[in-house]
């Protein structure tokens, strides 16, 4: 369970990190740090978020059902990109939040509930206010 205090702390951390432009999630260190723009990270695949932040995740993450759902949503919303990288229709703060949950190896029920809320919430991701309410709704886990 995440309490309100912890939540505030996490949100603050994300805000700071959202200010940085290129990011990489490192799973050896379990933390988020930036990567230089020209590197192609070994063992990783890349996605961009709607706010144009770059994330590199280990290939093994492609077998995670939450990640697969995100890619499916990207395909439905944008089609499969023919020329460039994959873009997800979410902003970076939301993706970081999901990654935290994935890293914590949520139990089966939490994962099911999360999958459900991602797919039902995605239509409302464009308008700013609705996005906030969705995020809050997701933070209940």
């Amino acid at each position: 369970m995440i309490n309100a205090k912890k939540l505030m702390k996490m949100a603050k951390k994300w805000q700071q990190r959202a200010a940085l432009h290129r990011k990489r999630i490192s799973f050896q260190r379990s933390s988020v740090f930036t990567s230089s723009s020209s590197t192609v990270e070994k063992g990783c695949f890349v996605v961009y978020t709607a706010d144009k932040i770059r994330f590199a995740f280990p290939i093994s993450y492609l077998s995670n059902s939450v990640v697969q759902e995100l890619l499916k949503i990207s395909e439905e919303d944008f089609g499969l990109p023919t020329e460039g990288p994959i873009t997800l229709p979410f902003d970076s703060a939301f993706l970081e939040y999901l990654v935290k949950l994935i890293q914590r190896r949520m139990d089966e029920d939490t994962e099911k509930a999360l999958l459900l809320s991602i797919s039902s919430a995605r239509c409302s991701f464009q308008p700013q206010e609705q996005q906030c309410s969705t995020t809050q709704q997701l933070l209940v886990f």
Partner: peptide, 19 residues
């Protein structure tokens, strides 16, 4: 185009690989 290494691409399983 996907900003990744060829050797990593070859590790991806069918299905999700369609992306």
């Amino acid at each position: 185009k996907r900003e990744m290494r060829y050797s990593d691409l070859t590790e991806i399983h069918p299905g999700v690989r369609r992306h």
